[in-house]
Amino acid sequence: MDRQPILEGERLFLRPLAREDWDALFAVASDKRIWEQHPMHDRWQEPVFREFFDDALAKSGALAIIDKASGKIVGSSRYQDHKPDQGGSVEIGWTFLAPALWGSGANAELKRLMLTHALESVERVNFRVGETNLRSRKAMEKIGGRLTDETQIVQLPDGPAVHVIYAITRASFAKGPLS
């Protein structure tokens, strides 16, 4: 599976994240509202976001999200944890969008593009969401994510954080609200 494709929708253009995207992406990420429900609620701070950004580049699955109308970077997302065995799975996550796009349908378009691409190669896409991140959990339900009984506990600087796992399969995507 190509984890750094170029994808284009009606309003969004996705391309591999590059080191040169730092200034534009940090300008978006420095808005505290993005991270207020996220387990890493301090990611708006430059040193914390720098670690996130460097990790995204190192793992080679990150995409810059560009608003086609303005040509500006408006967020980022990633494909990660690709497992090709038994039908295959990949995780889509680490997604954030500029608050100006919240409620606009941009997240649905972004996820539709990423899911369409991923489900050509894998049977299942997973989404790991902070248990208390209600904004992201509602967004997952809105796009047809099914809450599984799987959880992960991640050790963060402030202590352990519980993440719940949502899934969208090739079959459910074909029938779901994003089709």
Rank of each mutant, 00 (worst) to 15 (best):
M1H: 12
D2H: 13
P5K: 09
G9C: 11
R11S: 15
R11M: 03
F13H: 15
L14W: 07
L14G: 10
L17Y: 12
L17D: 10
A18R: 15
R19T: 01
R19E: 12
D21N: 13
L25S: 08
L25P: 03
L25I: 09
A27D: 14
V28P: 02
A29E: 05
S30H: 07
D31N: 15
E36H: 09
Q37P: 00
P39W: 09
M40L: 12
D42E: 09
Q45V: 01
Q45K: 15
E46N: 05
P47I: 10
D55S: 14
L57P: 05
A62K: 08
A64F: 01
I65W: 03
D67F: 03
K68T: 02
A69P: 00
A69H: 10
G71H: 10
K72I: 00
K72A: 14
G75K: 07
S76F: 00
S77G: 03
S77Y: 02
Y79Q: 03
D81S: 14
K83P: 00
K83R: 15
Q86Y: 13
G87R: 12
G87Y: 11
E91M: 12
T95E: 06
F96A: 11
F96C: 13
A98V: 02
A100Y: 01
W102T: 11
S104W: 03
G105F: 06
A106M: 05
A108G: 13
E109Y: 04
K111A: 00
R112K: 15
L113P: 02
A118F: 04
A118E: 02
E120N: 14
S121G: 13
V122D: 04
E123M: 05
V125T: 04
F127C: 11
N133I: 02
N133R: 09
R135N: 08
S136N: 13
R137N: 06
A139T: 07
E141V: 01
I143K: 13
G145I: 04
R146N: 09
L147V: 04
D149T: 10
D149K: 15
E150S: 12
Q152R: 15
P157C: 11
P157G: 11
G159Y: 10
P160C: 07
V164N: 06
I165D: 01
A167T: 11
I168A: 05
T169Y: 07
T169D: 03
T169A: 03
R170M: 04
A171C: 00
F173N: 04
K175V: 07
G176M: 05
G176R: 06
